[in-house]
Each structure stands twice: as C-alpha cells, then as structure tokens.
Amino acid sequence: MPDLPPTRWALGGARNSGYGDRFAQLLEQGEDVYGEARVADAMAERGARILDAGSGMGRVGGYLLACGHRVVAAEPDPALVEQSRRTYPDLTVLPHEILALTPEVLGTSGGPTEFDLVVCVGNVLTFVAEGTEVPVLERLRALLAPGGRILAGFHLRGGPSSARSYSPEEFVADTAAAGLRVDHRFGGYDLRPVDDEYAVWILSPA
C-alpha cells in the first residue's frame, strides 16, 4: 500500500496527549467509560466478530472481549497501543490506521478478516486524514460480513480542537458515496433523541 496521508490525529501532536491519561484516571476512579461498548454488545450476538477501528486505549474493545466476542482492535498511535496492551493485555491490537486494514493485514492477527460489527466511536471519523473520509468508510464497509453493521459516533460541536467539524449532512453524503446507508441516528450512546451536540450512527451496506 502506498504511503498514507497523515491523519488529523497525527497532525494534532501534543494536543492529543491528554486523551489516554484522562481515561486511565477515569478507570482508576471507577467511572463508567463503557457506554459505547454496551450499545455495541447489544447490537451483536454472543461470540460475534467485532472490529474496534481506532481503538484508542482499548476501553471499548476490552469490554467487548470480556463479553465473549471475538475482537480485533486497530490503533495507529504507538502510545495508545502500548497503553491498551498494558491495560487490556488479552486484547489483540494491530498498530494500523483504518485505511491499512486489508484482509492480509488483519490475517496477521490470527483473528477474523471480516466482521459482524465494526465499532468506530470516540471521534475517530473526525480525525482521519483530510479528504479520506469516503475511502475510510469504504474500507469499513468492505470489512463487513454479510449482514454486518457499523456503529459510529462523533461530536458535532465542542469536540477536540484538532478534529474536523463534520456536519450530519456531510456525513450522510459521505456514507452514501461509500455505499452505506444510515439505519439509525441518535444523540448519544444512551440512545437519546437527535441533537446538535453529538451524533451516534448505525450504518449498513446500501
């Protein structure tokens, strides 16, 4: 695969450094950091093949693994990969961004190469490289098994400073261009009504 353009996360540099520390502190304090993971678990049959794309420090993938699913996590940030492997040592983490997740790369993990559910939460889609939104969504769609779905979520406003602003209209247009459809939209992982602060999306192949 040719060299990939730098993601907005990579370009954010030190501005992103507090992410892993913040969630490590929340875990130490016993806070609930698994809202996204509970929704994902409810969407999947027990033992489902799940890809956590942009897995960060591993909190979603680690939870889903403990629920009995077959989970592969992918995270390109070396510091977050190390934190994930330390915090959730049983979770398989591939040090790759989404566009690099070919079946050949996934096969190196010894796990599945297609998935019943792809989880792409925590603003991941607002941190991909500029102009790669549609190819990223196409790659996620290509990794779905028949009947598979995607759970995605990101801030509509008030998100991280190094992330892009991604309006619902732009996102819906990009999903259509990638061969996906929006099945559901919510305002959060508690499945509250749509608002203009945050968007949770459930997608499937068109």
Rank of each mutant, 00 (worst) to 15 (best):
A24M: 08
G18M: 05
H184K: 13
G35H: 12
P6A: 14
S161G: 14
G35I: 04
P146Y: 00
G20V: 00
G61Q: 06
L151Y: 01
A74H: 07
G122P: 00
A24F: 02
P78V: 14
V33I: 15
V194F: 06
L51V: 06
L51A: 08
Y189R: 07
R192T: 12
G158P: 07
L101F: 11
A142Q: 10
L4F: 07
A66T: 12
E138V: 09
E169F: 09
P112E: 10
G110L: 05
Y63D: 06
D183Y: 00
S161D: 13
Y189H: 13
D77K: 05
A176N: 06
M43W: 12
G148A: 03
D190Y: 01
T132E: 12
T126L: 01
E138Q: 15
G158V: 12
R185E: 12
W201T: 10
E97S: 08
Y198S: 00
G188L: 02
A206H: 12
E114A: 14
F171D: 00
G58M: 02
S167C: 02
Y166L: 15
L94G: 04
A178S: 09
P193N: 07
Y88C: 11
R46E: 11
G158E: 02
Y88F: 15
L144P: 13
V119Y: 01
E170Y: 01
E169I: 13
R185A: 14
A10W: 05
A173R: 14
A100S: 15
E82P: 01
G147W: 08
D116A: 08
H184I: 03
G159H: 04
H155K: 13
E133W: 05
M43I: 03
R141V: 10
G47T: 13
T175E: 06
L151W: 02
H155P: 07
D52F: 06
G179N: 11
R49V: 04
P2W: 10
D32T: 09
G30F: 01
P160E: 08
E97Q: 14
L26P: 01
G13Y: 02
R164F: 00
D3S: 13
R70A: 12
R46A: 14
G35F: 12
M43D: 07
G188A: 12
H96T: 03
P89I: 14
V124D: 01
A10Q: 15
L101D: 00
A14H: 10
R15F: 10
S165M: 11
F171A: 08
L203N: 00
V182K: 04
G47C: 09
G30Q: 07
G12W: 02
V182R: 10
L64I: 00
R15H: 12
G148T: 03
G111W: 04
D174V: 05
T7D: 04
L64H: 01
R70K: 12
P135S: 01
C67P: 04
A53W: 06
N16G: 13
G54S: 07
L191N: 05
S84I: 06
P205G: 07
G110P: 09
Y189W: 15
A178N: 05
V172G: 05
A73H: 03
P205H: 00
Y189A: 01
G47Q: 10
T175Y: 03
G147D: 10
F23A: 03
D183R: 11
P103G: 09
P95F: 07
V121A: 07
P76Y: 00
A40W: 02
N16E: 11
A79E: 15
G111R: 10
